[in-house]
Design a protein around this nucleic acid. Structure first.
Length: 310
DNA sequence: CGGATTTGACCAGCGC
DNA sequence: GCGCTGGTCAAATCCG
């Protein structure tokens, strides 16, 4: 790995909704399943790096073909119909919840509506990003097949950075990583057991490690059961609206230059991260990394991430 | 009291 | 044109 690649991954993490990228367990060495670090694998939030790659690869020249090659989105579209402009910048995540609610994706959302949907006993909730001038929206509903699976449809692009990004601007003080959430953590602690609280703290540690100093408001335990890209935002659009926030000092190229040559150099990149299910589905026994201590874990993450894209 | 959530009403798109 | 459905608005309500 080189510093530029690490920088790229860091910036991918900071892009909207992807500030908690982890690596697929297939790229990591086995470890003792009794290790307490296994909690991390059961508490990951956000898409995998391979999922982002998949999303990027699908934002290519022929979105329609890419779309049909994947499982149907939440709102199915009859075959042969072209995408309308409404479908642009829209993608769907299927997330299996392990606890209450869904994970925080780094943005703050305000609920503006709820609607009962046909053939689905569970209502669909509509959220808007609370940031002024930001038109990002998301819909949240529970799957009819599996009540524990939450289907989140994101629409639009964030015209700002994640909240965790703002915390990143703070001095690297580990106390400060968690203090912004102390209020909510305190609130939630009323209803959660000590064990789940501990797991949550370990999860927070994990995300903090990945983002170097992440500051999500709180983390609920869930794992990604599937990711379903109906029409991903193109990388160009992402970059135009949400450019890399930092000059990492050692990477003069932009994110696009980082990514596109990679995909051109290795068009079969998605096939290495390959099978949709393999890549995106996690079992409870998935082992995220082999780490006797936290510090080496970071190296393991970096090595694993790179192995997944190279 | 201010911000977030709830919920009924309204509107637009689509199929028949 | 009509009805159905999904998405949004906005007043009422809740909550810290």
């Amino acid at each position: 790995m080189n510093e530029g690649e690490v920088s790229l991954l860091r910036r991918l993490q900071l892009l909207g909704g992807y500030d908690d990228l982890l690596i697929p367990p297939s790229n990591l060495s086995k470890q003792d399943s009794s290790s307490p670090h296994n909690l991390f694998s059961k508490a990951r939030i956000g898409p995998l790096i391979c999922e982002v790659e998949t999303a990027m690869s699908m934002g290519g020249s022929n979105g329609e073909e890419s779309y049909t090659s994947y499982s149907p989105p939440v709102t199915s579209i009859p075959a042969g119909k072209s995408f309308s402009s409404k479908m642009e910048n829209k993608y769907t995540l299927r997330i299996k919840t392990c606890g209450n609610g869904i994970g925080d994706d780094g943005y703050k959302w305000r609920k503006y509506g709820q609607k009962s949907i046909k053939n689905n006993p569970n209502p669909r909730s509509y959220y808007k990003c609370t940031k002024p001038m930001c038109n990002a929206k998301r819909q949240v509903e529970r799957s009819t097949e599996d009540p524990e699976t939450v289907i989140i449809t994101y629409e639009g692009l964030h015209l700002h950075y994640t909240y965790s990004h703002f915390v990143l601007s703070q001095p690297h003080n580990h106390d400060q990583i968690f203090t912004p959430n102390s209020h909510q953590t305190k609130k939630r602690s009323k209803t959660q057991s000590a064990a789940s609280e501990e797991a949550e703290q370990m999860q927070q540690m994990e995300v903090s490690m990945i983002t170097e100093a992440a500051g999500h408001q709180h983390y609920n335990l869930f794992k990604v059961a599937d990711i379903n890209i109906t029409e991903s935002s193109s990388l160009h659009e992402i970059m135009q609206h949400d450019p890399p926030p930092y000059n990492f000092g050692h990477c003069s190229q932009g994110l696009l230059e980082d990514i596109v040559p990679l995909l051109v150099r290795k068009p079969s990149c998605s096939s290495t991260t390959t099978s949709h299910n393999q890549c995106c589905s996690f079992s409870q026994s998935s082992l995220p990394f082999d780490s006797p201590s936290l510090s080496p874990a970071i190296n393991q993450f970096d090595a694993g991430i790179l192995s997944s894209i190279l």
